[in-house]
Amino acid sequence: MIAKRKTKSRPRIGSGTAPILSFEGVVKRYGPLEALAGVSFQVHRGEVVCLIGPSGSGKSTLLRCANALETIDGGRVVLEGVEVHDRRTDARKLRRRMGMVFQNFELFPHLTVLRNVAVGPTTVLGMPQRQAAERATELLRKVGLADKAAHYPASLSGGQQQRVAIARALAMQPDVMLFDEPTSALDPETIGEVLSVMKRLADEGMTMVVVTHEMDFAKRVGNWIVVFDHGKVVEQGPPQQVFDEPTVQRTRDFLSHLGWHGESLAAADLLVQPSSTDP
């Protein structure tokens, strides 16, 4: 049974206005290797920009450059007028405005789920424990894990851990969320729960940059797709263009390598599990 679902891609938001986050000719070298060879694209407020491309093409590196976890060797990254890698920029202040979600969750194993979410506000913002705990509880409810607050991460499934990680990032009330293959380390049965949390975030208007191999998510939730290969952007555009009429051979190769043939993969069904906030 192959359910053909007609998907409508979202329009690009605010394309005329100033971007919230922009990459301008970003270059990053590791020794002789050019991990990023002049990458440029823009992210507007409320948009979901999906980065796709083969492994090793520089997607993770780009995300790490976005919040100054890595230095860069050329070009610039600008967050609302602030140049991220400028020496005068306070990297820590800047990172508070960008939440990051990792492939391996990277929850802090020695802290309870609640403290994992609260530790950012308490240590970084100096928020009182009580207030941070309230905020954490609320966010855990939002990702459907309020009952796990007192547990330690090791007792959670991968999908649950990743939802906690999303709550942890949201606790800093960031302007932009960066996701690095948030579902790649998950068992197939828990991928859906993470994707639907992400979709809900997108629906609430969160600005998101998502590295993913979930093409159906990219197509359905993304407003703008950026295709990476060998440290370069080989193609970018709205989802229907990139997925349905890719202009570049590289993109076609990559998509067919993933088994994408223009329409819905079986994984699509995971995504559209009706969640209460779905319109």
């Binding site: 820590r92 990172r95 990051m100 929850l107 950012g120 970084v124 990032a169 800093m172």
Partner: peptide
């Protein structure tokens, strides 16, 4: 190293 990255990404200083 991901643990350090995750902590820095929250805005913590290296010392924190």
């Amino acid at each position: 190293p991901g643990q350090m990255r995750a902590a820095l990404a929250l805005g913590m200083s290296r010392f924190e």
